[in-house]
Simulated scan of single mutants.
Amino acid sequence: MRLIDLTVLLDPANREKLPPALAHAAGVVAPKITYLNPAESAGKDEFCASLGCAHEDLPDGEGWGSEHLTDFSSHCGTHVDAPLHSGSRCAGEPARTISDIALDELYRPGMVLDVRPWAKGGEIITVEMLDRAIAATGRPVKQGDALLIRTGQERFTMDDAEFYNQPGMSREGTLYLTGLGATILGTDAVGWDLPFRVMNAKFRESGDKQVLWDGHKAITSREAFIVQQLTNLGALPLAGFHVGFFPMKLALCSAAPARVVAFVS
């Protein structure tokens, strides 16, 4: 059994790579981290404050290592979206939060849908593309599958403009995959939908509000969990593996950062 990590690193340095227009969303990239080193004053001070001693009392002259994490979103890095992220109701019922989801719903057979030969930045991933990618796996989608869409976006870093110009899923494509039985939908892109600027342009041109975030909004019709910012999909076979999506257990939240690991025989 091989374990393959599909999770991006939460590195505060990436916050500085965001373009100015997205600076407000830095908490989606990584938290701010204050590092307390055991050999430095900050680590010693916290140790002493907790144990009621002075620096000269430290057993080996050191305190402890600790970190303070601030300013980060429940959608930080590789994360699992609960249905609540898409709307307050799902299929006519109150939408579930991340803490409502059982672990056995988050350990599923996986398939990689490699759409790189056809998908283009800033454009829709069509049902035809999805069908071709499914056919390439050698098996049909089964009820409860996790479908991981490989767009190729992981080749771009956050300081590359193309990182924010991902191929995106539509309402039609999302409902197509959930209609086949998929309950987890993942992508290596920064978002599941088209880039925000592209959706905004479509809305302004057509006046149709249904084009706004339609891939996510499809989840209000048929429940599934969306996972974004995956990495390392190229290390996986197209089928024949399981994936564990292990989000932090945050009460009443619409998402949580997750450690996503593939289990390959």
Rank of each mutant, 00 (worst) to 15 (best):
A135G: 00
L9M: 12
S265A: 15
G186A: 05
V260A: 09
V112A: 01
A224F: 12
L194S: 03
G186Y: 04
T151A: 02
D188K: 11
D100G: 07
P38K: 00
N165R: 14
P237D: 01
A91K: 13
D100E: 08
S99A: 14
A251T: 12
P237G: 03
W118P: 04
A23P: 04
L9G: 08
I219S: 01
R155H: 13
P59W: 00
A161V: 13
S86F: 14
R259L: 11
H75V: 08
P12M: 00
A255L: 02
P12K: 03
L180P: 13
G191K: 06
P20A: 10
L3V: 05
L230C: 02
E56K: 14
L238N: 12
H216L: 13
K44R: 15
I226W: 04
R15V: 09
P38S: 00
I184R: 12
D45V: 13
H85L: 15
E56M: 04
D208R: 14
L252V: 06
D193W: 03
C90D: 03
W213S: 15
S74C: 13
F203Y: 15
G52M: 03
Q228H: 09
A258V: 07
D71E: 14
T183P: 12
H24Y: 12
D145N: 14
P12N: 01
I149L: 10
T70K: 14
D11E: 07
G52C: 02
Y107G: 03
H79G: 01
Y107V: 15
L177K: 07
Q153Y: 12
M169C: 03
R197S: 12
D193A: 05
G110E: 07
T151I: 01
D100A: 10
R171P: 05
P12W: 00
A102Q: 09
P195Y: 05
E67A: 13
A49H: 06
A255R: 10
G61L: 01
F156M: 06
P109Y: 11
S88W: 11
V227C: 10
L69A: 05
V227W: 02
F72Q: 08
E128C: 10
F72P: 07
S86L: 08
C48S: 10
P31D: 01
A119V: 14
A133M: 03
G65E: 09
S73D: 11
A13N: 08
D100R: 10
P94V: 01
L130H: 06
